[in-house]
């Protein structure tokens, strides 16, 4: 089980929740289960997201493991110049 924190404007898609608990061993599973549990998030996930685990931001990294005590944030997909 991992607790993931979403950014504020995703609330309408999760019934007003900003923190959701998801059964996932890694980032890939997390994104898949998030989309299944909250179909409204699928659009954003498809458009692109990054995942921050314990302060480090992962843009791809679907195999990155999640521990129960990991601090996990869903963030918009990072780009740069």
């Amino acid at each position: 089980m991992a607790r993931v924190v979403l950014w504020g404007s995703l609330k309408p898609h999760t019934g007003g929740k900003l923190e959701v608990d998801i059964e996932a061993r890694n980032v890939g599973e997390l994104l898949a289960r998030l989309g299944e549990t909250y179909p409204g998030l699928q659009n954003q996930i498809k458009r692109g997201v990054s995942v921050s685990i314990d302060g480090l931001i992962y843009r791809e990294g679907w195999l990155e493991p999640l521990r129960p005590d990991s601090e996990v944030f869903l963030l918009p997909r990072m780009t740069g110049g």
């Binding site: 950014w7 504020g8 404007s9 995703l10 609330k11 309408p12 659009n43 918009p76």
Partner: peptide, 21 residues
């Protein structure tokens, strides 16, 4: 506008709303 609750009834030039903090 995406990211607004409830979903707006009228279209606009505001594509998305984000909130952090």
């Amino acid at each position: 506008t995406d990211g607004v609750d409830p979903k707006p009834k009228k279209p606009s030039n505001v594509a998305r709303r984000f909130e952090f903090g």
